[in-house]
Amino acid sequence: MTPDTTLDTVIDAVSAVFMVVGAAMSLGAAIGLLRFPDLMSRMHAATKPQVLGLFLLLAAVGLQLRTWWVWPVLLLAWIFQLLTVPVSAHMVGRAGYRTKHLHRELLSTDELEAVVQKAAAKDTAASDAEDDDDSA
């Protein structure tokens, strides 16, 4: 490592900024978890460090290692993340919507409710549903 080039310090500075911002994304997610009122809004905060934060941190790793062959692996790690995050977010969100973790007073519009009501009405006609209140 020759410390004479200015390029080196520039790369160092950029990766330092990336790392600090990436860590700040995690903090943002934690603040969101604590401050948002219901499950669904918290989900939005939770996906954040996993997409942008990880991107910034992996870019910082790539910049620090200064070899080209790490970039494909880093890209791969990020793409795996991109493919899995929406799926788990959707699964949790869907379960959250169905189990009435949703606070309807926080919604300005709900265009799914009518559809769900219709489907639920069809279901209750077929089988008598017990009143299973949400106790979790």
Partner: peptide, 14 residues
Amino acid sequence: AVARGPKVTNAVVA
């Protein structure tokens, strides 16, 4: 998260 916090309003949009 920092500024609005608990007073945020959402929607489910089709």
